[in-house]
């Protein structure tokens, strides 16, 4: 495909109708969203919503049994869904990078962290051994690992979870990528460390003006760090909007349910003041649902919800939602 002209208005990443399937089972269906330069987009959903699969698909790191069954992922004039392996390898680690949920297992236990960071810059920038090592120390310093000149020769098992995630981040940003995908970067970490790591990611996003995709199930994270929220349920996008409006006025029953079930947002409610509300049922009930995948668990569901998949409609300034029951579609301006 031909590289289009890069202008300020065209997004850095434009995902159109992405569909991911395991065999015949569709796990992500017709997902569209875009990420602009220096923008943080949060993809929110519970386990099994397809949010992590989406991140892996962007890197083309899907498990062997999964495949991209349709759609396009336009990134810097290329379609990530179809580019060949050598092209993909040139992009990975240099233009588009990813950090994973499990810092404890995501680093190779038999190589020093310095060697693992140096590997990326040696590969993509052809630095010499000593230059790569110096770069690794700089990067460790940049992600605020204390005493980087000494820690560079450490093995991962000597580091705490938070430190390892910083190493992962250092590796990911080593070549100044245009897009960083963070798949639940703080889920495995202590609460006290979470904010530090997210602050670090946010600072790097600003400094490198890179797009950041934050895959998470934590609405508190979304509220504080995201510019835009994509809410996913059972493989489909059910709502997309800036975080402020989402928290103030959710336009999809699933988003409303998520917010109600979260102790941190929603008006000072805490787990101390009584049991938190929950969304009845589970996500498995969405399998093979012909209509709205949330209908079996939805308090507002009507008969027509179960017949056809509700389309995404514009429900306000810069926001869409896929629920015709609680929204009356506004006419296009």
């Amino acid at each position: 495909m031909k590289a289009g002209p890069v202008d300020a208005s065209s997004p850095l990443l434009d995902v159109r109708d992405l569909t991911i399937a395991f065999g015949d089972t569709v796990r992500v269906r017709d997902l569209s969203f875009s990420v602009r330069e220096a923008e943080t987009v949060a993809i929110v959903g519970e386990s099994g919503s397809g949010k992590s699969l989406t991140g892996l698909a962007l890197m083309r790191l899907l498990p062997r049994s999964a495949r991209i069954a349709g759609g396009a992922m336009a990134f810097m004039g290329r379609d990530l869904a179809v580019i060949d392996e050598p092209e993909l390898r040139r992009l990975r680690g240099r233009e588009i990078a990813m950090i994973f949920q499990e810092p404890m297992t995501s680093l190779n236990p038999v190589l020093t962290i310095g060697a693992q960071i140096a590997e990326v810059v040696t590969l993509h920038e052809g630095l010499s051994r000593s230059a790569a090592r110096r770069r690794a120390i700089e990067l460790l310093d940049r992600v605020r690992v204390p005493d980087p000149a000494r820690r560079v020769d450490d093995y991962p098992h000597r580091l705490s979870g938070g430190m390892r995630q910083r190493v992962m981040i250092a590796m990911a940003v080593a070549c100044g990528p245009r897009l960083l995908i963070a798949d639940e970067p703080t889920t495995a970490l202590d609460v006290t460390i979470q904010a530090q790591v997210l602050d670090l990611l946010d600072g790097l996003r600003r400094d490198l003006s890179m797009g950041l995709i934050l895959v998470t199930h934590d609405l508190g994270v979304v509220g504080q760090w995201a510019d835009r929220v994509v809410v996913m349920y059972a493989g489909t996008k059910v709502e997309e909007a800036p975080p402020g409006p989402v928290f103030a006025d959710p336009r999809h029953p699933y988003t409303a349910g998520l917010l109600a079930a979260s102790p941190r947002v929603g008006g000072g409610r805490s787990y101390r003041s009584g049991p938190l509300p929950e969304i009845p049922g589970n996500i498995a009930s969405a399998v093979d649902e012909a209509g709205c995948s949330f209908a079996p668990r939805c308090p507002h569901a009507i008969a027509s919800c179960r017949l056809a998949r509700p389309p995404l409609v514009r429900v306000g300034e810069d926001r869409v939602a896929a629920c015709p029951v609680v929204n009356v579609a506004e006419p296009a301006p």
Partner: peptide
């Protein structure tokens, strides 16, 4: 199947480099 092998692939390493080094 380990996570660190996925990390290595995410760096853009070739299949051979991932195999021999990681």
């Amino acid at each position: 199947e380990q996570d660190y092998v996925r990390t290595a692939r995410a760096k853009g390493l070739s299949a051979f480099a991932v195999g021999s080094r990681h």
